[in-house]
């Protein structure tokens, strides 16, 4: 056990993370057993270099269709600032740009680039309301999901109906354990998973 886990608060968080990993492993293993698979189905690590390239290419294509405007060049400056900062060490960052400055794209670009640079495993975007989740997820899907390839963006909140046949099996399973490179969710889901006391929410 790492020495710092002896601190009560750190220890609790560590314990919760381990417990979550255990519950998840147990579920996956059970499901593999009943499907007659040789091992649990876990998605391979995300290739953020590739995802960032796709994101950047599509972003440029969309901008090219709009033509140059004064606001467009300001947004470009915000985006450039965010990418530059993505090279820095991990930690807490703040994006205080006003409404209309392109925060959704800029924070997406920052997160992908930062994940690539530091070998992080996934990007989780959390927003206060389900309606914003839908808007954001639509933007990120447009820029990241590719036909024929595994889905990248997982949308998880109370308004998503995973029983809808259109939602697909992957989304339903991934929502149980956030096994996706890019998750768009609500504050409620995020902090429930952080502080819950029930296995399914913590998993």
């Amino acid at each position: 056990m790492p020495a710092q886990w002896r601190d009560l608060l750190v220890g609790e968080m560590a314990l919760r993370l381990c417990y979550s990993a255990l519950v998840d492993a147990d579920s996956l293993d059970t499901s593999a057993h009943f499907q007659g698979l040789s091992g649990p189905r876990v998605r391979p690590g995300a290739d953020f270099e590739h995802l960032y390239t796709v994101f950047e290419q599509r972003r440029r294509d969309e901008l090219a269709g709009r033509g140059g405007t004064p606001v467009g060049s300001l947004r470009e400056r915000v985006y450039a600032d965010c990418l530059e900062a993505a090279e820095r060490e991990r930690g807490v960052f703040r994006l205080g740009a006003p409404t209309g400055a392109g925060k959704t794209l800029a924070s997406g670009g920052f997160a992908l680039r930062h994940a690539e640079k530091h070998g992080l495993r996934r990007v989780i975007v959390a927003v206060p309301f389900p309606t914003i989740t839908e808007q954001n997820a639509a933007v990120y899907r447009r820029l990241l999901d590719q036909d024929g390839a595994d889905q990248v963006v997982l949308e998880h909140h109370s308004q998503v109906d995973f029983d809808d046949p259109g939602a697909g099996r992957w989304a339903r399973l991934a929502a149980e354990n956030w096994d996706a490179p890019f998750v768009v969710t609500t504050f409620v889901r995020l902090f429930e998973s952080l502080f819950a006391r029930k296995p399914s929410a913590m998993r």
Binding site: L17, K103, A111, L120, R121, I124, V127, P128, N177, S193
Partner: peptide, 17 residues
Amino acid sequence: MHRLAHSVIVLDEVQAL
């Protein structure tokens, strides 16, 4: 929840926490 470790978490509209 263990998938939060080693991730980038973006909190949008953070004033609404």
